[in-house]
């Protein structure tokens, strides 16, 4: 049995809407529609999909905040769903919940677990008590997090005065003080600048390598996945659409990267470079699309050989675009975002 195991997991929400004076209509939304997968101990997995695909709902079920409508769910051998905890009887619901919470860490990128008005270190003292972390272990883990996440200067600063990137690092540290075996990260790099993103990624890579922490990560940023995850799962409309390597996703999705070249002057469209497709031009700047699975190097060489090249950049397709391409042309507006 896998460390994290989902079997035909479902979550249905009923949405009631007012129609006229007394009429109410009920509509069922299947936020998670029969998802099955297993994650082994020590894996680092990306869990991606467009907004409203069901990512956060899955995470909430895995942490035991939401009860599944159907299917089975096990995390470290524990069934996290609140209703099963209520049924389990022995020791009551709180014991199961505490048992699970001791073994998982959660970071919600858009929320914080830290005490807003108090210095950062106060929140860590709280974690110390909350997870009953032995003193020596607490010291050791805190020191490590402070060093790797560069929190030393921030410990005495009230959380409300931290920047988003600082707060995120503070939250990640808070989730790790009790040595969780699994770390769920819901959009850990959302809103962060490039430097902060890099630092967070570096830390997670190091954590996974040195502590063997299993990481499940949702994100909208493909670079997170590229740099961290050997495996990616794509979900859309509550269904698992893809489970495998990131490169494979690009192949399946036939996604394209964009080569942006700045020429010395305005020139006719570059249409004679093999493997590239001319998209559009803005004065001396031209946009060429090429398959995401192939290398940009030969393309750059070919363009540089034949044209007066001043500057260039490569744009990665975002996840929504990849998924939109993967599952047909029904989402034209998403493909636009490639442009």
């Amino acid at each position: 049995m896998s460390f994290i195991e989902l079997e035909s997991l479902e979550k249905t929400f009923t949405i009631r809407r007012k129609e006229g004076l007394l009429k109410r209509s009920k509509r069922e939304v299947r936020a998670v529609d029969g998802i099955s997968f297993g994650v082994e101990r020590g894996e680092m997995v990306g869990y991606i999909g467009p907004n409203g695909a069901g990512k956060s709902t899955t995470i909430k079920m895995l942490t035991g905040i939401l009860t599944p409508s159907g299917g089975r769910l096990r995390v470290a051998g524990i069934d996290p769903s609140p209703s099963s905890r209520l049924r389990s009887g022995r020791g009551g619901p709180n014991r199961e919940r505490t048992r699970l919470a001791q073994r998982i860490g959660v970071v919600f990128g858009q929320r914080t677990t830290l005490w807003w008005d108090l210095p950062l270190k106060d929140s860590y003292g709280l974690m110390h008590r909350m997870y009953r972390i032995p003193d020596a272990r607490y010291r050791e883990n805190l020191d490590r997090c402070v060093e790797l996440l560069d929190l030393g200067e921030l410990l005495d600063v009230p959380v409300r005065q931290l920047s988003l990137g600082q707060r995120m690092r503070g939250d990640i540290a808070a989730a790790l003080l009790h040595d969780p075996e699994v770390l769920y990260l819901d959009e850990p790099t959302i809103g962060l600048d490039v430097v902060s993103k890099a630092r967070v990624r570096e830390f997670l890579r190091e954590l996974n390598a040195s502590q063997g922490t299993t990481v499940l990560l949702t994100t909208h940023d493909l670079t997170d996945i590229e740099q961290l995850c050997s495996r990616v799962m794509v979900i859309d409309h509550g269904k698992l659409m893809y489970d495998g390597k990131l490169a494979g996703l690009h192949a399946v999705g036939e996604s394209e990267r964009l080569l942006v070249v700045d020429l010395e002057r305005e020139l006719p469209p570059i249409e004679d470079v093999p493997g590239a497709r001319f998209v559009r031009a803005e004065g001396p700047r031209q946009y060429l699309a090429f398959p995401a699975s192939s290398s940009a190097a030969p393309l750059v060489a070919a363009v540089a050989a034949a044209y007066p090249l001043v500057d260039l950049s490569v744009r990665e397709p975002d996840i929504e675009a990849v998924i939109a391409k993967m599952y047909g042309g029904t989402r034209e507006e998403r493909r636009e975002s490639l442009m």
Binding site: T63, I65, N94, R97, A101, V106, R111, T113, M130, Y131
Partner: peptide, 13 residues
């Protein structure tokens, strides 16, 4: 706002 999610997964009542 849903921030209550943070409170709910904690091992505390």
């Amino acid at each position: 706002t849903g921030d209550i999610a943070v409170d709910l997964y904690r091992p505390a009542d």
